[in-house]
């Protein structure tokens, strides 16, 4: 089964975090990313970790689910860690054998860079887990709409995103089905060298493309018959209204950034 992707998958429960205005969440996520980049001490990371933990509790997200979102990144994480560990210059040697020399600075950088990556993913995962993709694209559309004046297709972009998200599970199921069907005809997707493996994907990719085009045609017709005619004159089912909670959330984020800056100055 191919449904082990948590990034971009909404986790539908009711929580204060879920109820926040998606525009606010989007901006706060960007602020959070900035905050992560501002951190230079282990205390800062502890602060960030505490924050992520608190938010995920508040959002009623199972920790397991959050951590599972990291799994696709494990190779990149490992690589980041090792590259930084081996190739960062430093003075205090901790370990040295053969050509390998690990310094205190390198270890520190390796840990910090990896943590930064982890928190970036966790932060954005919390956004996508607590915000329905439609709300997210609504938020994007509104935040980007000032750019419409310079003919930036904000509505179209948001609609494309919604549709893409809607069809990801459908196409994943379909991939699984076609793969099995071709395996039943003796196809082999696993062995062979790179070229023969790429070639063996054709029986999977062609039907998948054909089906995606067919679906796109059907969907376009269904949307038209439901009076879709672009963004003009469209109202919204989800109205975005800023509430006290949103202000509170902004306050919390400001506090976090403040604390990080402060400890950066004090403890560095």
């Amino acid at each position: 089964m191919l449904n082990n992707i948590t990034m971009g998958q909404y986790y539908p429960v009711d929580s204060p975090v879920h109820r926040l205005d998606p525009r606010v969440k989007l901006i706060l996520t960007i602020a959070f990313i900035v905050a992560v980049f501002l951190v230079h001490t282990i205390w800062g990371y502890l602060l960030i970790a505490g924050f992520v933990y608190a938010v995920s509790r508040l959002a009623r997200l199972p920790l397991k689910m959050l951590i599972r979102g990291l799994r696709p990144l494990r190779m990149i994480l490992l690589l980041t860690f090792l590259l930084n560990l081996f190739f960062t210059a430093g003075d205090t040697v901790l370990l040295s054998f053969w050509v390998i020399r690990i310094t205190r600075e390198a270890l520190r950088q390796a840990v910090f860079y990896s943590l930064r990556l982890v928190f970036l993913v966790l932060g954005t995962s919390i956004l996508t887990l607590t915000t329905s993709p439609v709300a997210l694209s609504d938020a994007l559309e509104i935040l980007l709409s000032p750019l419409k004046k310079i003919h930036f297709p904000a509505h179209e972009l948001a609609m494309m995103m919604t549709i893409a998200l809607r069809f990801i599970p459908t196409l994943l199921d379909e991939t699984d089905k076609i793969m099995k069907a071709q395996m039943a005809r003796g196809a082999d997707f696993e062995s062979g060298n790179l070229i023969s493996r790429a070639k063996s994907m054709i029986p999977l990719l062609v039907p998948l493309f054909v089906s995606a085009f067919r679906r796109a045609g059907d969907l376009a017709m269904a949307m038209e018959s439901r009076c879709y005619h672009g963004g003009e004159g469209r109202t919204r089912f989800r109205v975005l209204k800023l509430t006290r909670q949103d202000a509170l959330a902004c306050g919390c984020m400001a506090l976090l950034i403040g604390l990080i800056v402060l400890e950066g100055i004090l403890l560095r």
Binding site: K177, A181, R185, A187, P203, V206, V210
Partner: peptide, 24 residues
Amino acid sequence: FQYPEYQLFEETVAKDIAFGPKNQ
């Protein structure tokens, strides 16, 4: 499988039908 026509991929009918025996 169900709706097996969704697994067709070759340029011609004959080539598509030959996919299984070729793999054999």
